[in-house]
Nucleic acid binder design. Structure first.
Lengths: 334, 334
DNA sequence: CTGAAAGCGCTTACAG
DNA sequence: CTGAAAGCGCTTACAG
C-alpha cells in the first residue's frame, strides 16, 4: 500500500501539500496539483482509514444496530437496512452492521472504540436497553421506532396513530359498521413494541368516535399458528365486513387463507393493511394499505444523523418526527 | 474517551505495561494486573480502534459485499447476511456492509483504505467484475457463489448439480415420467448466475440418464408475470405429474396459484424445490425441498476467510467447497 | 503557494 | 517483571 509520503516523494512535494491537495483546504498551483494527481493515480493511492480516523476522530462509518426478535417477520427488516445503507453511502458514510443480541453492549463497544461517527437504532422498543448506552456515549444516534422516553434523542417513526385513524375512516366512509383488527402478536405488545398499541389504541378510539364496532385481536408470528388464529378470528366474527391487518406475518398468509375459505375480496370482505410496496410485491398482497415507507423512514433518519454528526444548525433541537404515510388503493375495499 | 495513557497514569504503571496486560503477551505481576484492571474499569477504557488498526494493520472488520439485482428476490438475501454477521462476530470480527451497485469499486475502496481485514462476496456470478478487484488487493476474500475462474480464490457454494440430481431421482423413484423444471428467470442465466445452469444442466442430464421427460422453463421475477408464466407452464404441460421449482419468487407464488387452479399436492401433482427452512416458514411453503442451507454456507465461508486472514495452515490451498445439501421431506410428492 | 513538525493512541522490539 | 521510545499514516496549526 502506498502512503502519503510515497505520493509526496513521487510528486516532489511535501506530505502536507499532498494532504491539502486531497482535502482542497488550501489552494494548490495547477502544476503541483497535476504532479500530485499523477502520482496518486500511478501509485493507486488511497488514504489509510485508520490513520485518518486516529488523527481526525472521524471514521466515516455509521453503526447500524439491528435486532432480530424471533416473533418478528425477518423479511421486513431488509426494507429498512437497504435504504439506510444507500442513503449513508450517498452522504459519504459506510455501514457497520451489528446484530448482536446484546445491542447495548454492541453499541457501547462500537462507540467507545471510536469505530463509528454515529448510530442508527432499528426497531426501538418502549424501554429499549440500548437507549441508556446511546445516551452515555459521545456519538449521536437516531432511532427508528418510538421509545417511551425520548429525552435528548432524535427519533423517526411512522405515525401509526394517524395510519390507524385513516384506515378506520376509510372503512367507515364506505359504510362498514363491524370491523376486526388483527394486531401484532401479544409478545410484541409485551416487549414494548410501541407501534402495536399506538396503532390499536388510535383505531379503537376512532372507531368509537365514528360509532362502529372494532374488535381487536392478536396475530401470531409462526405457521401453523398464524392460519389457525386467522381462521378462529374469522369464525368468531361472522358479521364483520371489514378487516384491518396490522401484522406482516398474518397478512402474508391471508390471501391463501381467504381463498381457502371462499371469501372474496372485496365482495365478501373489505381488507386494509399497513405495509410497503416491496412487501406487497414479494408476497403478492392485493390489499389497499398504508404505505409503511421504510425507505423514507431510513432516509430521513440517516440525514438527521448526518446533520447531527457534522453539527449543522439544520439539525435543530432533538425531537421526534412522525411521518404521515399515504394510503395506496389496491381496490380491496367496497 | 480515556486513552491508554490515562489508564497507565491511574494505575501508576507505564503505557506498555497496560498494553501487555490487555494483550496477555507477557506476564504481569498480580498486583500490577489488579491496579490496571481497576483503572480500566473505573475509566471505562476501550482501546481506540483506529490507533490499533494503524499500528497493527489489522482492523477486526470484514467487508460484506452484497448485490441486489432487480430480478432477484430480496427477502432471500437476509438469510445469508445474518449468519455471516453472526459467525463473524463469534470469531471476533465486525461487518462492514456494502451494497453499492459498483461492487468492484466498493471492494477496492474498503480494501485499499485498510478498513477491512478480509472480504466476503455474496451472489458471485460467472464473470463477476469484483473478482479482479479482489485479486489485486492485499486482503483475502471468500466467495459465496461459483464464478467461471476460481484461480487463487476460496469459494463456497451449494452443490446445485447434486441437488438437481437428487430431486430428479426423488421424482423418478416415485414413478414420475413427465416432469417440468421452473428455472430462474432468463435474465439470471444471461448475467451469469451459474447456479441457474448448473442446476438445470444436471437435472436435464439425470433425466435423460433415467429415461424421463424433463421440460425446462424460465421463471419470472415480478408479479403479475410470475402468475401468468406459471399458468402458462401448467397449461402447456397438462400431462406432467412432477414439478421442480428452482426459483424463489415463483415458488412463493405457487401455493396460492395451485389452489386457484384446483390442483392438489401431491394428489394431482408432485412438487419439489430448493430453499431454506426460514424461507419455507416465511412463505408457508409446504413442498419437499433441498435445504439450501444459507446459514451453513455463510458459516463455512466466514470460517475459511478467518483462517486465511490469520494465515493458519488449516486454511490450506485455495479451493472450491461445494456443500451437499439434504432433502427435507414435507410430503408434497407421491 | 508550500514545507517542517507535532501529535492522534496504540503495539512492540529493545533494554534493564 | 517493567519502562522508555520508535513509529504506524495521517491532518493541521505554524511559519515563511
Amino acid at each position: 500500500m502506498a502512503t502519503i509520503d510515497d505520493v509526496a516523494k513521487a510528486a516532489g512535494v511535501s506530505r502536507s501539500t499532498v494532504s491539502y491537495a486531497l482535502s482542497g483546504k488550501r489552494s494548490i498551483s495547477p502544476q503541483t496539483r497535476g504532479r500530485i494527481d499523477r502520482a496518486i493515480k500511478q501509485l493507486n493511492y488511497t488514504p489509510n482509514a485508520g490513520a485518518r480516523a486516529l488523527r481526525t476522530a472521524q471514521t466515516g462509518v455509521l453503526g447500524l444496530l439491528v435486532q432480530f426478535h424471533e416473533d418478528e417477520f425477518a423479511p421486513a427488516m431488509l426494507q429498512y437496512i437497504l435504504p439506510i445503507t444507500e442513503t449513508s453511502r450517498a452522504l459519504g458514510y459506510d455501514i457497520l452492521m451489528m446484530t448482536e443480541t446484546d445491542g447495548a453492549e454492541a453499541l457501547t463497544r462500537a462507540a467507545e472504540s471510536g469505530m463509528v461517527d454515529g448510530l442508527v437504532l432499528l426497531d426501538v422498543t418502549q424501554n429499549d436497553p440500548r437507549l441508556d448506552a446511546l445516551r452515555s456515549v459521545r456519538q449521536p444516534g437516531v432511532l427508528v421506532g418510538l421509545p417511551g422516553d425520548t429525552r435528548g434523542l432524535d427519533v423517526v417513526d411512522l405515525d401509526f396513530a394517524a395510519a390507524a385513524r385513516s384506515l378506520v375512516d376509510h372503512l367507515v366512509d364506505l359504510g362498514h359498521r363491524e370491523v376486526v383488527l388483527v394486531s401484532p402478536p401479544r409478545h410484541v405488545f409485551e416487549r414494548g413494541g410501541a407501534y402495536s398499541w399506538r396503532f390499536r389504541d388510535a383505531a379503537l378510539q376512532r372507531a368509537s368516535e365514528r360509532g362502529i364496532t372494532l374488535t381487536p385481536r392478536y396475530g401470531e408470528s409462526q405457521q401453523p399458528a398464524i392460519d389457525e388464529n386467522l381462521h378462529a378470528i374469522l369464525d368468531d366474527n361472522p358479521d364483520a365486513t371489514g378487516l384491518i391487518m396490522h401484522n406482516d406475518a398474518s397478512v402474508a398468509a391471508l390471501p391463501h387463507l381467504l381463498h381457502q375459505r371462499g371469501v372474496r375480496v372485496p365482495d365478501d370482505l373489505s381488507v386494509v393493511s399497513l405495509y410497503s410496496r416491496d412487501f406487497a410485491r414479494w408476497f403478492s398482497l392485493p390489499y389497499t394499505a398504508i404505505e409503511s415507507s421504510p425507505g423514507l423512514l431510513g432516509t430521513v433518519a440517516v440525514k438527521q444523523l448526518a446533520q447531527r454528526i457534522t453539527g449543522e444548525d439544520a439539525a435543530g433541537p432533538h425531537g421526534t418526527r412522525l411521518i404521515t404515510a399515504e394510503i395506496v388503493d389496491r381496490g380491496s375495499t367496497r
